[in-house]
Amino acid sequence: MRSVGFYARFSGEIFAASGIVIAVVYLYFSFSIKVPLVVDFLGPRFMPLTLGLIFLVFSIHLLVSEVRRKAASAKLVVPMTFRTVYSVAGSAGLSVFYFLAIEHIGYLLTSLVFVFVFLVLSQYGGIVKCAIYAVGIVAIFQLIFRLLLGVPLPTIFV
């Protein structure tokens, strides 16, 4: 299995760089916070501005030290493979599907599909075994959340 070269090599830098971007965006929006006419000494902007600045300084610090560290030793330490990335990204994608679908096709159906697809993709067992497990798990969830705790989970039948 090939390793995911680019991301593994630069993940530290990518993280630090995104930190800088987050800090800048955060600071930009800190300035647009409305200040009411009657306000305490520090006001609503003080804390965000302070936090944004600290975040910016440490992100830059991190970026610099990451680059230096890499220059010192060009060794790759993150054992990431395509398969890992795909399976994690796949389950994240499946969760996003869950989030988008639940409103339209209801809790029951979404959860059934979610558990079933997850188990099939993770090669847990045959289609039938996965289906049985999916039905079982979702049934227990229905019992706990809808019946026992009375959470109004979304349904298709309004």
Binding site: S91, S95, Y98, F99, I102, Y107, S111, F114, V115, F118, L119, S122, Y124, Y133, I137, V138, F141, F145, V151, L153
Partner: peptide, 16 residues
């Protein structure tokens, strides 16, 4: 596999 899917589903249902 089962534990993971249960954790995921619990997290999603619980947060709702």
């Amino acid at each position: 596999e089962i534990l993971t899917v249960i954790i995921l589903l619990l997290a999603l249902t619980g947060s709702y």
